[in-house]
Design a protein around this nucleic acid. Sequence first.
DNA 1: ACCTGAACACCGTTCAAGT
DNA 2: ACCTGAACACCGTTCAAGT
Lengths: 224, 224
Amino acid sequence: MDKKTPPRARRDDSLSRERIIDAAIAILDQDGERGLTFQALSAHLATGPGAIYGHIANKADLLTAACDAIVARAVTPDAPGATPQAAIRTLALAIFDAMDAHPWAGAALIQAGGKMPVVRILESVGRQLGALGVPEAARWAGVCALVNYILGVSGQNAANAQRARTECAERGAFLAAVSAEWSQLDAVQFAFTRSMAGQLRAHDDRDDFLAGVDILLRGLAARY
Amino acid sequence: MDKKTPPRARRDDSLSRERIIDAAIAILDQDGERGLTFQALSAHLATGPGAIYGHIANKADLLTAACDAIVARAVTPDAPGATPQAAIRTLALAIFDAMDAHPWAGAALIQAGGKMPVVRILESVGRQLGALGVPEAARWAGVCALVNYILGVSGQNAANAQRARTECAERGAFLAAVSAEWSQLDAVQFAFTRSMAGQLRAHDDRDDFLAGVDILLRGLAARY
DNA sequence: ACCTGAACACCGTTCAAGT
DNA sequence: ACCTGAACACCGTTCAAGT
């Protein structure tokens, strides 16, 4: 993905892919995905909108690159003494927290297919699964399950954080609103969802997220 | 979400929320999400773009509603004699196939938060988890893990199908391209991903998807 | 009450002209 | 070689005017 890294030195304040990505992240953090405009971006960089296309292909490319910067920061080298299980839990939590801090990255990451940011996570989880003794033939399914769970739940949580930010004053009020919606569902057709409405308001997102990771790890352990 | 169901009869060919959603699905299936334009939609319905806003709130609302129609068709009532495990596998495959047939729904579903289409899946999985004997306190984590896995992997698969459709002639060529990209990654930093490049090209998406569902079910069974 | 469709305020992207 | 910024071809949404 990163094939056209600029090969030679550049003037101090000249445009660069890196400077553009940093500016994009700053805008995304402040105003969300809708705020990231080539107008806003070029103003932030004190240049014209056309100049940006010298360094990035298009808006999708920019979003994936911004995402990759966030993920690269979150995927730190493994602590030397940790068990594979502990390393996976640490990685999962790092992604969860990064998505919570940069909610726009959740949606972008899921659209990114087999691209760089996802590959980083894949790689890190895959190594630990190897250390865990999962045989090579079964590793693909295990990695898929774990990575998709991590991306899915973190992304969902990020989407909630974003909706809470735009629709309600605070996160608690938002969860209460969804909980109230669920309580008004048909009592027969949606009995289970209604029964979960209370837990939705009370639960701790991070705890529940980790509980799911443990279910997956237990499933893998039960097999091998 | 569906609170303003039209309460009274309407002329045969007059606009209705349902007719709009059907037209939207037809356009999405044919031209993808980028093809769904209020221009194209109103042309398809032989009306002006403004008329649509009498029945739907905005484009996001329309997309969620279209998604819900797809999911509602896929989530069929459980077969009477089936075990909970079998019912969950059947549901998971139905979602997977629906997303594969309507790739745009994958992305839309993930953005839909605690809304109707997701609730349908939540409800169906939750019931089976109850039948499986998972105690109420642990059901939330279990449902989260399963639903997110199903949505995540199906969505990823749908995104691949969509990228394959637009970037390459056929699906095999697309997977080969991603596989080739992975093979060119750094041998030390991305050793695991490189080792998976072969499997990526050879694997059967549906089989691997089901294998992941089984890992989750086994993890839940190991605990309760 | 509902539809019509021109108009509005944007948006991503391009490209001739500058330096 | 790189930046500039006007211009292009759109887009979702609104709203006065019609029926």
